[in-house]
C-alpha cells in the first residue's frame, strides 16, 4: 500500500496556522559546510520560525544533523570543519567573530541523539548550566531553577525523591528528559534536538513528543528526525534535505500531502531512504 505518512490534516493545518504569524527567529543564507575536502552541505537557505517546531528530515548523511550543529556552532569542536555563508539569529550573525560562542550556546540549547547525562547526580546535571553561567544568586534560586526545569521536562514527579542519585541510573527515556531539563535550565531561546528519540522505546518517545509540543509555547525548537511520522506529529514546518542540499521546506501538512519536489515525494513514499 501507499506508505505515505498519514497526516491529520485538520489539526496539522490548524497548528501551522497558529504559528504562521510567528516572526522568524533564525535565518540561514547560503550555508556551506566542508569536512576537510568533503562538501557536506551546499547553499542552504532556511528560515526558522519562533515558537514553532521545525523538523529536518532526509535520508542518512543528507546533512540535516550537520545543519543543526551549525546553529549553535557545535561544528567548531570538529577539527577540519569549515562553515561559510550566513546564519543570523534575531538579526545577529552567529558566525560573527565578535560573537561569543559560549554565550551563543547558552541561548541555543541542544539535546543529543544518545542521552548523555553527566556521571553526576540528577540535581547536579540540571544545575550545571545555571552554575557555569551564573544564573542563580543563591542556593534557593538554583534549587528553584532545577525543580522548574525538571517539571517542565516532565521528569520531576518521577525523580523528586532521588535528586541525589546519579543521572546515569535513570532509564533511557528519563535520561533524555533529564538532558532536556538540563538544556532548558539555562532558558535558551532555541532548543536543537538531534534525533532525540532514536535511542528510546515508543512509550518514552511519546512522552518526549508530548513534551516538545508543550515546550513549543515558549521555545523555538529545531528537531532532526529519521521518523517521518514523528516529524508529522510534532512539527509545524518541515525541511527536507537530500545529499547536502535543502530540497524543500514548507508547512508540515503540505510537505507530507502535496510535496512539490519529486525527491521529496520519493522519500516520503518510501522509495529510498
Amino acid at each position: 500500500m501507499n506508505s505515505m505518512v498519514q497526516v491529520d490534516s485538520a489539526s496539522a493545518i490548524a497548528a501551522a496556522a497558529a504559528v504562521a504569524g510567528n516572526p522568524v527567529k533564525i535565518v540561514a543564507q547560503g550555508v556551506n559546510v566542508y569536512y576537510g575536502e568533503k562538501h557536506a552541505l551546499r547553499d542552504v537557505d532556511l528560515d526558522i520560525q519562533e515558537r514553532a517546531v521545525t523538523a529536518l528530515i532526509g535520508p542518512s548523511g543528507c546533512g540535516k544533523s550537520t545543519f543543526l550543529r551549525c546553529l549553535n556552532r557545535m561544528n567548531d569542536t570538529i577539527v577540519g570543519c569549515r562553515v561559510t555563508g550566513k546564519i543570523t539569529m534575531d538579526d545577529q550573525d552567529i558566525y560573527d567573530p565578535q560573537l561569543d560562542v559560549v554565550q551563543l550556546r547558552a541561548r541555543v540549547g541542544m539535546v543529543f541523539q544518545k542521552p548523555n547525562p553527566f556521571p553526576k547526580s540528577i540535581f547536579e546535571n540540571v544545575a550545571y548550566g545555571p552554575r557555569i553561567h551564573g544564573l542563580a544568586r543563591n542556593k534557593a534560586e538554583l534549587e528553584e531553577i532545577v525543580v522548574t526545569s525538571l517539571k517542565r521536562a516532565g521528569l520531576y514527579e518521577e525523580v523528586k525523591d532521588r535528586l541525589g542519585d546519579s543521572g546515569t541510573s535513570l532509564s533511557g527515556g528519563q535520561q533524555q528528559r533529564l538532558c532536556i531539563a538540563r538544556a532548558i535550565a539555562v532558558s535558551p531561546e532555541v532548543i536543537l534536538m538531534d534525533e532525540p528519540c532514536s535511542a528510546l522505546d515508543p512509550i518514552a518517545t511519546a512522552k518526549i513528543e508530548e513534551l516538545m509540543d508543550e515546550l513549543r509555547e515558549n521555545y523555538t525548537i529545531v528537531i532532526v528526525t529519521h521518523s517521518m511520522q514523528q516529524a508529522a506529529r510534532v512539527s509545524q514546518r518541515t525541511a527536507f534535505f537530500h545529499l547536502g542540499v535543502l530540497v524543500e521546506v514548507g508547512v508540515t501538512g503540505e510537505i507530507f500531502t502535496t510535496p512539490r519536489d519529486r525527491r521529496t515525494q520519493d522519500y516520503i513514499t518510501g522509495r529510498f531512504g
Partner: peptide, 22 residues
Amino acid sequence: PQSLRDGSYGMGATKSETIKRV
C-alpha cells in the same frame, strides 16, 4: 565519551569548564 563533552559544550560551557566539571 565525546558525548559528555558535547553535552557540556552544548550548554555553553568553555573548554576548561567542561574539563574541570565534566
